[in-house]
Design a protein around this nucleic acid. Sequence first.
DNA 1: CATTAACTCTGACATGCTGTCAAACATAGC
DNA 2: GCTATGTTTGACAGCATGTCAGAGTTAATG
Lengths: 209, 209
Amino acid sequence: MLSNIARATKIDNVSEITPSRRRRRRADADRSAGEILRATKDVLAVQPHASVEDIAVAAGVSRQTVYAHFKTREALISAVFDEIAAEAAAGMDAARLDRAPAVDALLQLLDISWRTLQRYPLLLTVSPPAGDSTADGKRHEPVFDHLEAVLSRGRQSGEFASGLPVPWLVTAIATLGHAAGDEVRTGRMTPQQARDTLARSALLLCGAG
Amino acid sequence: MLSNIARATKIDNVSEITPSRRRRRRADADRSAGEILRATKDVLAVQPHASVEDIAVAAGVSRQTVYAHFKTREALISAVFDEIAAEAAAGMDAARLDRAPAVDALLQLLDISWRTLQRYPLLLTVSPPAGDSTADGKRHEPVFDHLEAVLSRGRQSGEFASGLPVPWLVTAIATLGHAAGDEVRTGRMTPQQARDTLARSALLLCGAG
DNA sequence: CATTAACTCTGACATGCTGTCAAACATAGC
DNA sequence: GCTATGTTTGACAGCATGTCAGAGTTAATG
C-alpha cells in the first residue's frame, strides 16, 4: 500500500534503470505523501474548494512540498480518489462474495460502498477530475469490476431478470449511491432510510424486487 | 420571459418604488443580457471551464458588461440553469399531461427532459453552483414539481407500486437521466439506447415494469 | 560517525482568473 | 436635443496555481 503511494508520487525512485547506484527513497517522503493525502481528505470534506495552501498547512508541510509529491492540484485529488477506491475494493475482496447468492452479494457490495461514502464525505462534494479517457470510468474500475461481476453472475443464475444491460446497471447503481448519499448530506433522509431505499432501488433495477 | 431575464439581472429597474420619475430599462440591456446568456450556453458546452472573458467575447461584449448584468460568474451560470429549467418546465406545461395515464405522462416527461439534456450539453459537463439552500433542489423546482405530480398521481391510481418514497423517485429518476446522458456523451450508448434504457429504468423504479 | 544524496523550506516570480472602480464614450428614451 | 442608462477602456487588488533557485535539514549508506 505504501509502496503504491510511493509509486504514484512525483519524486519517484527510478532505480530500476540504474539498479544500485542510487539511494533508496527516504522515509520522510513516504510520511509526507501520506500526511498530504490524509490532510486532503480531511480538508476537502469540510471545504470542497480548499486551496493547495490550505491542504499543505493541514498536512504540516509547505505548499511547495505538496507540488513535490503531486504534479498538480488535480493530480492530488486524483490520488485521493484512487486511494479511496482502492480501499473500498480491498474491502470487497476481503468479503469473498464469489459463492454467495447474487442478491446477497449485491447487498454486501452496496453496504461496503455505502460505508465508504459515509466515511469520506468529500466523495459527495468534490467533483473528481474528469481527467483520463472516459468520464471517471477508469478510476473506480476496481470497484466497478466487483459490481459487474456480481451483476453478471446474478443475470446468468436468473436472479436478476430486468433485462437492462449490465454496464448500465453498474453505472445506474453507482449513481443512485451518490444520490442516496446526497439525501443524507442534505438532511432529507436518515442514513438508515437512505441505505434501505438504495438497496431496494438497486434490486428493482436488477429485476429482483 | 424577457422580463424574467431583466428581473434576474443586476441592473434592475426598481421604478416600482418611485413610479414615474425614472426612465424605463433600455432595450440595449435586454439584448446584452440575452446575448450573454446565449453565449454562455454555447461556450460552456464546448469548454466547461471557460472564463468570463471567453464568454464575453463570444457574446460580443466586454467582460465588465457581463459583470454589469450578473454579480458573479456563479450567478451567471445559475441564471443559465434557471433559464434552461424554465424552458423545460414550459414544455412540460404545454404537454398537458394532467389527464393522461401516469405511465404515459411519465414517459412524456422523460422525453422532454431528455431532449433538453441533448440540446444543452453543458448540463452534463458544468456542475451547477451549489448555491442556495439545499443541494440544487431549488433551481429545478419547476421541473421537479411536474415529475412529482405525475409520480404522486401514479401512486394513487395504483399504476406505480414500488413503495419507494416519491421524493426519492424524483431524485433517482433525475439522477439516472444525467447518467444516461453521460453514457451518450462518452459514446458508450447511442441516444436511442440511452433513451429506452432510461425509460425502462424509471418504470422499474416506479414499480410499473 | 561522516558523507552525501534526498527531502523540505523560504522567498520570489510569472501567469491567469475574479471582481471592482473610475472616467470617457455611445445610445436609446423622453 | 437633453439626459439617464449602458458600454467600453484601462487600471487595480486579491487570490490561486505552478515554477524556480538557494539555503537548510535529515535520513541512508559505507
